[in-house]
Amino acid sequence: MQFLSYLINGLGLGSVYAIIALGYTMVYGIAKMLNFAHGDIIMIGAYIAFFALTKFALPFPLAVLAAIAVCTMLGVLIERLAYKPLRQAPSLAVLITAIGVSYFLQNGAQILWSSSSKVFPSVISTGSISLGSASVSYLTLLTIATCIVVMICLTLFINRTKTGSAMRACSEDKGASMLMGINVNMIISITFAIGSGLAAIASVLLASTYPSVYPTMGSMPGIKAFTAAVFGGIGSIPGAFIGGLLLGIIEIFAKAYISTQLSDAIVFGVLIVILLIKPTGLLGKKINVKV
């Protein structure tokens, strides 16, 4: 049964996309901007985890924590320095700035750590278990489990806490939120912090699966995850989750049954078809333009 193992591997890859897509979708939902530097946060996270494991010989959980801490701070810092001054600017200016930040991070990494790729140590046990006829690696299971835990925690946070409620309020109406006394800038910072922290988690999973760390490693997963977020309906958290998983499954199936070379084209082709049928994505809401 090849099918089952393809499906589980697809879910594993999709879980990584989903975790990254959550960052895109939350930032879009609240700050109404596409943070194209999000993929490069993944790259920074991978480097931090790499150095923590190799140079400082930290245990794996501490290396993950280090990556989360650095990425969280970096995300907040980028928002403060690059995006906050453009709060009133046209969205195109913000988009171009985000692309600029992305190149800044990539080139910064090249200067600091050179452009040659580093081999990420395999810290997660390479063993696998067999499910019927399919064999599934521990890493894939860990990735899927992480994604589910992240999703549950995030959903509880957004729906059950005061800050979560304030975040939902800001995503609907910033002016009305201010009238409630909500510090909108603070909420935006928190959103960037959460998104970047999740990117750090994704970076470790990604670097463990494809163990090479280099300055542009975040681009492709970043774009795929962005696609996943659009696929599911940008701004929607369950949408990012479902979009990510579907994208991973489609990609693996396309590779397995159609063509390895064409898999990315097929993924984006499916996106185009979905957007033609449902322009707001699978779970996207209709955007009401105020008159």
Binding site: R168, E172, A176
Partner: peptide
């Protein structure tokens, strides 16, 4: 003006 309640809450 226009109430501006949080429709999704």
């Amino acid at each position: 003006e226009g109430r501006r309640v949080f429709a999704e809450q």
